[in-house]
Design a binder for these strands. Structure first.
Length: 243
DNA sequence: GCGACAG
DNA sequence: ATCTTGTCGC
């Protein structure tokens, strides 16, 4: 990467380890934004496009690359994409993920030329200790329908689901249904689906199934994951010759 | 008080 | 998230 490009890397307040917000302030922000999340939807039943978002971190944790891919739902092929490179905006605090990744994700979203009809986030939405995970935050901030698809649980308990693709179990936390545990492939570890914004849980599960024709994770997540890793590699490895 | 804890 | 050897299977 050229010096000119490096100079344009987005820089957000607070380098890693010195966040611009305190934990208490971040929690207060979540409490203030939570009422603005639409958890009912139902959201578009047949969206034409769906976006995947993901972030990759450099080994030292000082640099990150965010990627957004927009897929045509009919073919599940990428029709648009964008990336951003920067520093984590907050330390790693389970429950405060958005403050770490959201700035970079928003920067990438801003560079899209196609406005996706749904955001599929790598992480949770409602299935969060304060019911305001990354997917809720991203949805509220962008105004777009958003759902969370987590690979591991953050909160909640469940029983099942059955062993076949499409089998589900309720994800329950403190007596509330906060999401659904969904088997996307026969005999493979399930994923955790929760509502983010402007989409109901039934539809969220349907959208995830529609985007997992072959692997455990949605094509949205897979394409975004690949893109952010490639972007990070390009921003890190090769371009350090003269040193 | 102690452990667990999205990415 | 990232690191990392080996192993099972299409």
């Amino acid at each position: 990467m050229s010096p000119a490009e490096s100079a344009e890397l987005p820089q957000w307040d607070g380098a890693a380890g010195s966040p611009g917000l305190t934990v208490a302030e971040a929690v207060a922000v979540q409490d203030r934004l939570r009422p603005r999340a639409d958890l009912v939807g139902p959201g578009p039943r047949r969206p034409a496009t769906v976006a995947g978002l993901d972030v990759a971190y450099a080994p030292d944790g000082d640099l990150l690359a965010a990627a957004v891919t927009v897929l045509d739902t009919a073919t599940l092929t990428v029709v648009d994409h964008a990336v951003s490179v920067g520093r984590p905006a907050f330390g790693y605090v389970p429950g405060l993920f958005a403050f770490r990744e959201l700035p970079a994700l928003l920067a990438a979203l801003d560079r899209l030329t196609v406005r996706p009809e749904l955001l599929v986030c790598d992480g949770h939405g409602l299935a969060h200790p304060r019911r305001f995970g990354l997917a809720c935050h991203l949805g509220v901030v962008t105004g777009l329908p958003a759902i969370g698809v987590g690979k591991t649980p953050l909160v909640g308990t469940w029983t099942g689901p059955g062993p076949r693709r499409g089998d589900t179990a309720e994800l329950v936390d403190a007596g509330e249904v906060v999401g659904r545990v969904l088997r996307t492939r026969d005999g493979v570890k399930p994923v955790f689906v929760s509502v983010g914004h402007r989409m109901g849980l039934d539809n969220a599960v349907a959208q995830v199934l529609a985007s997992t024709p072959r692997y455990r994770l949605p094509e949205t997540t897979r394409t975004a994951d690949r893109l952010c890793r490639e972007t990070l590699a390009a921003a890190t490895g090769p371009a350090r010759a003269t040193g």
